[in-house]
Amino acid sequence: SAAVGMAVAIALVRGFTLPRALGSARAGGAPTRTGELGNFWADLVRGVVRILLPISVVGALVLVACGVIQNFSGIHEVGQFTGGTQQWNGGAVASQEVIKELGTNGGGYFNANSAHPFENPNGFSNLFEIYLILLIPFALTRTFGRMVGSLRQGYAILATMAVIWLGFTALMMWTEFAGRGPAFELAGGAMEGKETRFGIAGSSLFAVATTLTSTGAVNSFHSSYTGFGGGITMLGMQLGEIAPGGVGSGLYGMLIMAVIAVFLAGLMVGRTPEYLGKKIGTREITFA
């Protein structure tokens, strides 16, 4: 899904920026001969081989260093400090975990998602998994700027995504830390449904990142958040993957929003709507 999302985003940008610039007269704007427009399957393979796999290899090594397990053991018995034995599961968790977070997936190796200590053992691994979730969606905005020949356009989209994400994060932190009442005071805060090794801050940050990207991974129980905090997670799910959204889907979702916004602004000021120097007409708005 991550590779498809990137390929779709790249195809959308190319299809929007190149055909008219190349002076094509064919229906649909596809040029007859060009080495620039690319091929969906080529973009798909390049996205996997040049982006997803290299990051996954490096990310898996970082997670192993953090304490995430990576072995080929099945269910096995281990000794306990208090005596006796306990059955533990093994598996190639680190390599699967990095793919899960990088590609906006969820579930987890042990069906307990990123709350399981074998998948997310400490605060640093928690921050690194959040970084993996946000890495490609935010980075693709600069890719967009390079493809259209204007880095400022990419940075403008990045700034829009970042402002929304930071606003959600600030609101979530405020409402979760501001819990009042005997239950909150006894628990040291709004800790229901949260892992003690992450605390309120690490859980809130993960909740905002995972809902604004539509990632299936969670490290806490969102329905156990405060009323306002739970509302923030639901709003993030309903926002439509734009801040920063999933891999590829965040970029093309934001581009659709930009096309509609430019069109409406053009109508209000009485000018022909244009984006990236190209007129936006009925056909483009219908697609958007």
Rank of each mutant, 00 (worst) to 15 (best):
A115C: 00
H116G: 02
P117L: 14
P117A: 14
F118L: 15
E119I: 11
N120R: 06
P121R: 12
G123F: 14
G123I: 08
S125H: 06
N126S: 12
F128Q: 03
F128G: 08
I130C: 06
I130S: 02
Y131N: 00
L132S: 02
L132A: 05
L135M: 09
F138H: 01
R142E: 10
R142K: 11
R142N: 01
T143P: 00
F144P: 02
F144Y: 15
F144V: 04
R146E: 13
R146P: 00
M147V: 01
M147C: 02
V148T: 08
Q153H: 13
G154V: 05
Y155K: 05
Y155I: 01
Y155M: 10
A156C: 00
I157M: 14
I157H: 05
L158N: 04
A162H: 00
V163C: 03
I164T: 12
W165A: 15
W165Y: 15
W165F: 14
W165T: 10
L166T: 13
G167W: 03
F168Y: 15
F168S: 12
A170L: 15
A170I: 14
L171S: 13
L171V: 13
W174V: 12
E176M: 03
F177T: 07
F177S: 04
F177Q: 03
R180T: 13
P182N: 06
A183E: 14
E185F: 05
L186N: 03
A187H: 03
G188P: 06
G189D: 02
A190N: 15
A190I: 02
E192Q: 14
G193E: 06
G193T: 08
E195I: 10
T196V: 13
F198Q: 03
G199W: 07
I200L: 11
A201R: 10
A201W: 15
S203A: 13
S203Q: 05
S204N: 09
S204V: 08
L205K: 03
L205N: 06
F206P: 03
V208A: 07
V208L: 07
T210D: 01
T210N: 04
G216W: 08
G216F: 07
G216Y: 05
V218E: 09
V218Y: 04
F221K: 12
H222R: 01
H222D: 10
S223L: 08
T226Y: 04
G227C: 00
G227S: 11
F228Q: 02
F228A: 13
G229Y: 06
G229T: 07
I232S: 07
T233N: 05
T233K: 00
M234E: 11
L235K: 02
M237V: 09
Q238D: 01
Q238K: 11
Q238Y: 04
L239D: 02
